[in-house]
Computed example of a mutant assay.
Amino acid sequence: MTWFVKIEKGIVPKHIFDQYVPAHLEYVAKLNKLGHEAKTGYWKEAEGGMLIFKAESMEEAKTIVENDPLVRNKCVEYVIHQWCIVN
């Protein structure tokens, strides 16, 4: 599997965003049970955050991201990148 990164920025008020954080964390736990080695977090000094995970292809990565509760509930805008580790 290859590493992928979803870099996101919140686009709704914090009180709405926070309603979906527990579902997002449950989703990340589910991804880990399936072997995707997912980690999620936010930028301390700025708005937004990142989800890093493994997938078989960009198509699978897009499906994973599209099923994230933060994306499904239109809480974030995002970009997906394949991360090519060099060291």
Rank of each mutant, 00 (worst) to 15 (best):
V76G: 04
Q82H: 11
E60F: 08
E37M: 14
E37Q: 13
I80W: 00
E77H: 10
I85G: 01
Y42E: 07
L25D: 09
V79S: 07
N67C: 02
P69W: 04
V5T: 15
N32A: 06
M50H: 07
A23I: 01
I80Q: 02
Q19Y: 12
R72T: 10
P13L: 00
D18M: 05
V5G: 04
L51F: 00
E77R: 15
E26L: 15
G10F: 05
M58I: 12
W83L: 15
N73A: 08
Y20C: 08
T40R: 12
L31H: 02
L25G: 01
K33C: 09
G10H: 01
K62C: 11
A46Y: 13
I80M: 03
A29H: 14
H15N: 11
C84E: 12
L25P: 03
Y78R: 06
E45M: 10
Y78M: 04
G49F: 02
N32D: 09
F53I: 10
W3A: 00
K9S: 13
E47W: 14
I7Y: 02
P22W: 06
A29W: 03
I52G: 04
K54S: 06
E59H: 01
A38D: 01
G10I: 05
S57E: 03
I11P: 04
S57C: 05
C84P: 00
G10Y: 01
I11V: 14
L34Y: 05
P69I: 09
K33Q: 14
E56M: 13
K9W: 05
E26N: 15
V79M: 11
G41K: 05
E8I: 06
